[in-house]
Structures are given as C-alpha cells and as structure tokens.
Write a protein that binds this DNA or RNA. Structure first.
Lengths: 198, 198
DNA sequence: TAATAGTATTAACAATGTTAATAATATGAA
DNA sequence: TTCATATTATTAACATTGTTAATACTATTA
C-alpha cells in the first residue's frame, strides 16, 4: 500500500469513526455530513475528497459495524454444547445484538445505501453469512436426531424470517414487548421447533 | 358535522389523494410537501392550514391505505374452507398485498410518523387487528384437531413474525427471491407447522 | 526559491419542511 | 349594496439538508 494510500485510509477512518459516534448517539436520521465534518475536525466538504457521497461513507460505517457484529456472534459457538441449545443461544444473541444496535439494523436492512463500493463489498462478502451459520447449526440438530434432514431448510427459513420479523417490530413499531420478553419467546419457539417428533 | 368541517374534510381529502398518488408513483422518500400542493392544485403552504405537518398528512394516507388493505384481506374468508387451507390463503394474501404495496409497508412498519392524531387513531383502532385474525384462524385449526390448543400462541407468533421478516427481506433487501417463490415458501411453512402430529 | 501538484475551505446551489407576513376571498351587518 | 371583519390561500423568508465549483492553503519537487 502506497504512502498516499495509507494517509487516505487514515483520513477515511477519521470520518468513519466520527460518523459511527454520531450514529450511535443520534441515529441514522439525524446524521448529517456537516456534523461528521465537525466531529472529525475538518470542514464538511473535505469528506467529498475521500468518499463519493454520504451513502458511501455510511456503507463503510456499516462494514465496520458488521465486523464487530460477526465477531460478537461467532464467539457464542461452544463445541461442547448440544446443537439445540447452541441454536437457542445463537438466536437469542442475534436478536439481542441487533436490538441493542438499532443503527446496524437500520443500515443493514432498512436504509438504501445504493451500490456497495467494491472495496467494501469484498470485505462484507468474505464474512460468513448469518444464514449459513444458522443452517449449519440446524443441520447439526438433524444429525443429532432432533429433526429430520428434510426439515432443515424449512426450519432455517422459518427461524431467520421470524427473528428478523421480531426485530422489525421491536425496533420500528414501538413494540409492546420489552426485549427480555421477546428473547423468551424466541427461546420458546426454537424449543418448540427443534424437538424429536414422537 | 358542521359546514366548515365538511369543507375542511374535503380539502383534507384533496391533499390526501394527491399524496397517495405521489406515494404510489414515487415512494415515500421522494414525496415532498411541494409536490403534494402542486398535484392538489394549491400552494404548498396551504397544506399547513389542514394538517399539523407532513407526518400528519402521511398518517391520514396510512389510515386510508389500511382501509383498503383490511377490506382486501377480509374477503379471503371462506367459511366452507378448511381452517388450515384458510390460514394458508390468508398468509399468502397478506404477504402478497404488502409486497405489491411497498408504500403501505413503509408507512406502517418503517417510517416514524410520530404520535397518531386522535381522529385517525380511532379509525385505525376500530379495524380488526391482523394478529387477531391470524390467531383466530389458528385457533380454528386447533379445534379442527390439526394442532393442540396450547400450540396456538407460539404458532401465531411464529407465523406473523416470519411473514413480516420475509416482507422485510423482499422489500428492503433487494432480495434474491421473486415474489412467487416467497409465496411458495410461506405455503410450505404453514403446511409444515399446521399438521397433525402423529 | 519558484512552480506545481495535492488537499482543505469557503461560497454557492437547489431542494427540503416549516413559519410569518401578506394578499385574496368569503361572511355578516349596516 | 357596501363596508368591516374573519377566514383562507399565497408568497417570502428561514434554517437545514447534500453536493459541487471556486478559492485558499500546504506540501513536494525542480
């Protein structure tokens, strides 16, 4: 990486960090390019020397946040654990993490950031998809005899959709249920779905 | 209703209709108070004589759209039909309707319109909640012997969350699957969940 | 030291929602 | 009908948004 590129990357990170701070404090809607410039200690227009537009900056923020998210979600993996129990923990953790990071949810599922720049697309693509991890764990449940092999796909689809639906309600509809209650529901649902049919 | 009130209501409907047109053509994000004024044949500022702000106007639009939506969803009810089949149709219809009316989804689940004005809250509250209707049908499935009584709640929660999750993917993440495929998945999932456990 | 390339800043633009000031119109009384 | 008043619509204005063009500044290199 050239000298120039190192410096440019550093500048980019200044703006990205500033943006992330504002995002956490005030949310996506209240972020503005002026605020980011202020917080980073530069004029607002300087941003446009390093990012195509605000959406590109936000895409970099998203990539950063996904990094953390995946790290957090990965370390729930405990080999010793029963796959069914593992799946429950995974579902809980997934829900909880997004519930506590509404901005991530917004950027990832709600906001339209336009085309993802290649540099970031690579970064995001390499990360193991959430769906895959879920399917894998459900697959283990099948091997452990909890469910049938041919149920894996339906269950994976059902579970991912359900968790995201609950997130939508929790974060967007000032939903009736507090977080802990929803977590309980998720636990119950997975418990219901993954069990030996007698 | 006084004369003045009739006229005011008529004026309101001009703006509401104009807004709905624009919403359907261009979506929530591209709607502006200026465009609404133009389309309705008035100056933009006139709107503020009849609505507190743009959010209030949008809330009225939403109420209007919900009217149509409920009408559409209600007439799937066929008494002769098996409750399981009824539930499948209902789920399909629900998904399809929102998939075809992304603006409704946005206004109802995504956008924050602030406090709902009383006049509209009444209107929206009277309408039978979607969740209720679903629970009722699932209850019928229990009575018909498909599932157990104590499964009704979990299944209702699971199904609503799942369908909304799928809508989120379809409408917000330029989702991989076309509408018909998702409808197929929904059918399969309901079929999987509602069946006599042997 | 002077010329040039690279980078940051200010100024400016068009579009947004909203409010205050003004114009037009309808209403009611004489 | 005509004038005074209340109602309603419009234009002007403001602050804020993202973005771009013009300008100032700061390194680098000859």
């Amino acid at each position: 990486m050239s000298n120039k590129e190192i410096q440019a990357q550093r500048m980019r990170s200044f703006f990205i960090d500033a943006a992330k701070e504002i995002l956490e404090e005030e949310g996506v809607k209240k972020l503005s390019v002026r605020k980011v410039g202020d917080r980073a200690g530069y004029s607002y227009a300087t941003i446009y020397n390093y990012f195509k537009d605000l959406n590109e900056l936000l895409t970099y923020c998203l990539a950063d946040m996904l990094d953390d998210a995946y790290r957090m979600l990965m370390d729930v993996k405990e080999e010793s654990l029963d796959p069914r129990e593992q799946l429950i923990r995974y579902g809980e953790r997934y829900y909880t993490y997004f519930a506590q990071n509404p901005v991530l949810f917004d950027l990832l599922f709600i906001e339209d950031l336009g085309a993802t720049p290649e540099a970031v697309a690579d970064k995001m693509g390499e990360l193991p998809s959430v769906g895959q991890l879920l399917i894998a764990t459900i697959g283990e449940c099948a091997q452990a005899g909890y469910i049938l092999e041919d149920e894996v796909e339906v269950l994976a689809d059902l579970l991912t959709a359900s968790i995201h639906g609950k997130l939508l309600f929790s974060l967007k509809r000032r939903s009736l249920d507090p977080m802990e209650v929803v977590v309980g529901t998720i636990r119950r649902e997975i418990g219901y779905l993954i069990r030996r049919k007698k």
